[in-house]
Write a protein that binds this DNA or RNA. Structure first.
Lengths: 204, 204
DNA sequence: GAGTTTTACTTAACACTGTTAAATTTTATT
DNA sequence: AATAAAATTTAACAGTGTTAAGTAAAACTC
């Protein structure tokens, strides 16, 4: 009775096709500028087929976000793996990786981290517990705890410090993406400044 | 021949009525959830009338943003005025005022600072030069230069430092607004941490 | 292998959206 | 009162997300 398994595999394949198409289009044209019909056109199915695989457009978005988070986690995990460095350097590299990830996939970053909840009023809010977002954040926390134990940043509540770091790196990433009309100083200089200022501010 | 002046006054009044209605609705329900027809209903005019006063929906938004910016500037200017304090304290108060402003008017903050450009692809990007945004930023810069001269923060490029500060305060504000599902530590503690970390990171 | 049931997908439609062109009402001028 | 100008509206277009009903295809049963 392998027939059921094959069908499930086929369903999963189409799900992935939809997800990939939507992801690429969202990343290229922005969430608001991609309609369900456009996605359907691209994958050569009728628009309503998408609704057999995803609850609605924002669900499609959420699932893409989970994938994007996954990529970010991989990147940060790789840095953590080559743990030759002192924890504080590891932390610093992780911060830089986060920002560069955002700037490399601005539209994915947008839909994952920037797009405000207000756009999804009335939509089901995906729970944080168990999400990729939680895992991504745990990486920061782990590096913070490590740096704290090594005496390289001041002792304090790990959650507070992790969130402070997140605020800083999200801040610069979001601004660079959303305010391209603003006369920022040279990008690398600003990123450097944000990272260094934050680390210095957290030192013992 | 005061008739022409009265007409101009009347036009300006209706413009203000539209702006106020839209501003309130955007702030209450979010930009994406307010349609031109809903605004028209509220002011008891036909939807197309709005287009006689504003180029399109995003123009309406931009003009509201200018107003919102204006309010923020007033708040920050008031702090600057009572310059009894040391520049660094002034700067710190300004940062707090910015964040609190954002949290008090989350939807206005959203449409002014968070909403990504991608939502306005193809729309005319309002120039930064001469905008309220420029003025608001100049306040930060002024306080930075003051603190630098007073030897209370390290010497360096004022633009870079100002933008670093902006990144930090925008980061925490944007996160608190957009990620209400995230288990943040107590709001006041986080805000404190961001401000203190940034200031400490910038000290000489 | 024919008939039935289940699954996958599509067509048609609803109630919206931003926006424009044409028609109309209101106001001012002659 | 008739004409010109300005302000506002009606009607329409082309698009949106989404749902209910209908159709085609595959799988199962006999």
């Amino acid at each position: 009775m392998g027939v059921q398994e094959r069908r499930e595999r086929e369903k999963e394949e189409l799900r992935e096709i939809i997800l990939d198409a939507a992801s690429e289009m969202f990343a290229q044209e922005g969430y608001a500028n991609v309609s369900m019909r456009k996605i359907a056109d691209k994958i050569e199915y009728s628009p309503t087929t998408i609704y057999l695989y995803f609850k609605d457009k924002s669900d499609l978005l959420n699932q893409i976000c989970e994938e994007t988070f996954g990529k970010l986690i991989e990147t940060v995990a790789a840095i953590e793996a080559e743990d030759s460095d002192a924890p504080i350097n590891c932390l610093q590299k992780g911060m830089r990786a986060y920002i560069e990830f955002g700037l490399k996939y601005p539209n994915h970053y947008e839909i994952t981290f920037i797009t405000p909840l207000a756009d999804f009023l009335g939509k089901e809010i995906h729970p944080y517990e168990g999400s990729m977002g939680q895992k991504a954040f745990e990486h920061i926390t782990r590096q913070v705890v490590g740096s704290m134990k090594a005496g390289q940043i001041k002792k304090g509540d790990a959650a507070t410090i992790s969130q402070t770091i997140w605020a800083a790196i999200h801040g610069v990433t979001a601004l660079l993406i959303s305010h391209q009309d603003f006369p920022f100083v040279e990008k690398e200089i600003l990123i450097d400044s944000v990272i260094k200022t934050t680390i210095k501010g957290l030192q013992a």
